[in-house]
């Protein structure tokens, strides 16, 4: 089932087109990457899903419900610009944020106690937020995002400013929630960071969909023409019509073949000219794919 459907949404700010007729859908229980460089329209798209801003045109429905405001409580959102009331006590802040998701007080308090215990924050419960270290405040933000057991989790640049321990923690918790069937959206410009986590991706640039679908399929379509090569001998063979581009790093070379070239045939040719010690077909990274697409447009 598609838990989220976005149908041709657009948003302009004055003369600036932030999002242009963007459509995508999201299967329940999957991890989804919303990717693109800074200013591509990722945050604007998320804000429209969160009903923070309203699309100029198009439709969004969450769990077949097009009243985005009502569906709002089913989502947990960790914004890129995130902060927490510094003058409030830890427990109060969490209770307040839980109330905003219409959680009953008792259930909320139980969940808060569980999470504070688990993340080693129990003795800070009645301390003011400003007394906490930055790392602890980050934990607090993570708790506030998942406290109400959302069906969908949206993380906008989640690893920005996060220390390595919390990065690990957030990945663990997310995997655990995914096991329980939570749908997760990652929005980031650091594509390498989420490559291992995402099953589906949507890549946008200048507000438009440039690439979407299953990550494996995409990689298969784009892959198989990137090669890592170690050799000894004259590198003259690189000046060849079969090679689209190459980077010679000294002790090895990375090269991309033209599409119609079969890597096996290419290897045979190379072997006849130099001594090959390593030959590996490498998967393209999302970064490579994005750069290729961006250059094409």
């Amino acid at each position: 089932m598609n838990i989220l459907e976005v149908d041709s949404i657009s948003k302009n700010f004055g003369d600036f087109e932030a999002v242009k007729e963007l459509s995508f859908s999201l299967e329940e229980g999957k991890v989804f990457g919303l990717l693109g460089p800074n200013g591509a329209g990722k945050t604007t798209t998320i804000r429209m899903i969160m009903n923070i801003i309203i699309p100029d045109s198009g439709k969004i429905s969450i769990m077949k419900n097009s009243d985005v405001e009502k569906a709002n409580n089913l989502i947990g959102y960790l914004p890129e610009e995130r902060g927490i009331y510094r003058k409030m006590k830890v427990n109060e802040v969490l209770l307040f944020l839980a109330k905003l998701k219409l959680m009953p007080r008792k259930t909320a308090q139980n969940e808060i106690d569980n999470w504070l215990e688990r993340l080693d924050l129990k003795k800070w419960k009645d301390k003011k937020v400003e007394e906490l270290s930055k790392g602890m405040q980050q934990k607090l933000q993570i708790i506030s995002t998942i406290l109400h057991k959302p069906k969908i989790l949206i993380f906008d640049e989640p690893f920005m400013g996060l220390d390595p321990l919390n990065t690990k923690l957030i990945k663990e918790i997310l995997l655990e929630l995914k096991e329980k069937g939570t749908t997760i959206i990652f929005s980031t410009h650091l594509m390498d960071n989420v490559e291992k986590l995402c099953e589906q991706i949507l890549m946008i640039n200048k507000g438009k969909n440039v690439l979407s679908g299953n990550l494996k399929t995409i990689k298969n379509n784009y892959g198989k023409n990137r090669i890592q090569l170690k050799f000894s001998g004259d590198d003259k063979f690189l000046q060849n019509s079969a090679v689209k581009n190459f980077d010679n790093f000294g002790n090895y070379v990375e090269l991309q073949l033209n599409k119609e070239i079969d890597p096996q045939e290419f290897l045979k040719k190379v072997c006849s000219q130099v001594q090959v010690s390593k030959f590996e077909i490498i998967e393209p990274s999302l970064n490579d794919i994005f750069i290729e697409i961006a250059e094409k447009n």
Binding site: N51, N72, G83, I84, L97
Partner: peptide, 18 residues
């Protein structure tokens, strides 16, 4: 201003309309 300068706003208005 407090909510704005401490970047709290977006967290809040993702749960309640502005």
């Amino acid at each position: 201003i407090e909510e704005k300068s401490q970047r709290i706003t977006e967290t809040i208005i993702s749960s309640i309309n502005a």
